[in-house]
Amino acid sequence: MKNFSRHLIKKVGIMLLTLWLIITCTFFLIHSLPGSPYVNQEKLTPAQLEILNRQAGLDKPLPEQYLIYFKNLARGDFGTSFQFKNQPVTKLLLNRVGPSVQLGFQAILTGTVMGVILGMISAMRQNTWVDSIVTIIAILGRSIPNFVFAVILQYLFAVKLSIFPIALWGKFSYTILPTITLAMAPMANSARFIRTEMVEVLNSDYIELARSKGLSHWQIACRHGLRNSLIPLITLLGPMAVSLMTGSLVVENIYAVPGIGEQFVKSIITNDYPTIMAITILYSAMLIIILFVVDLLYGLVDPRIRVTGGERLAA
């Protein structure tokens, strides 16, 4: 156990170091940008500009701003948005977390469930036309960029067939198109993954035993095959989270979802530094934490791949 806790501490240390590096780089890079955040506002006199700069703390030397930023960050304060008057970034983002999280969960859930079903079917019907179709779906889902999916789905189902609104947020049915778009990649990846795993499991000895006990084909698949293939599926969680976050940026924009991704793109266009910084840090932190948790889960689920495992297995 000592080994494990040391491993844990090391991982946490690296995690914090990474986060600090990201915050620092973001801060200095953003503050080296030319242009003032107030160029978007109506014409301002130099005196007014000075007052605004002082209010935002932009008149202080950079290192001091950096320290202040860190102090505020510790309290969960990301500063004030330059774009929306007197709106704290934290509040701005909190309002937008909901839709993003909802879409993310719906997408992961739909994607994985669909993927598992497809993967299972194709493993059970190996080398038949069903298998080929699933393989093709998986290749399409993996290859076609999600914004291309988003645009095409929007064109077909919203513009041409008018089944869904083109870009609107509110009712559950409005979330269907963005969810499908975001679910494509997780679906494709888990289908492929489950297929490979199941094929391997189905060829192992204990499946032979189950068969000789008289269990039906599908019973074996569900009870023995699927259960053993599902656990390694968490290895896909990390890459899935990354692709979801990337995807959410464009998908939220295309479908006008009032989420974090949409805010990010808006902030980039309007040079809203505090918001850009906050979202960059938020994204990075979420990702780092997810990867960390997945890393821990690996070890818990499969002792063979436990990072410190070598000696413990022998002991």
């Binding site: 990354v242 940026l249 990075s284 990702l287």
Partner: peptide
């Protein structure tokens, strides 16, 4: 590798 590619690219 802990730094998200997306964040770096956008920055």
């Amino acid at each position: 590798s802990g730094i998200p590619t997306l964040a770096v690219m956008i920055l």
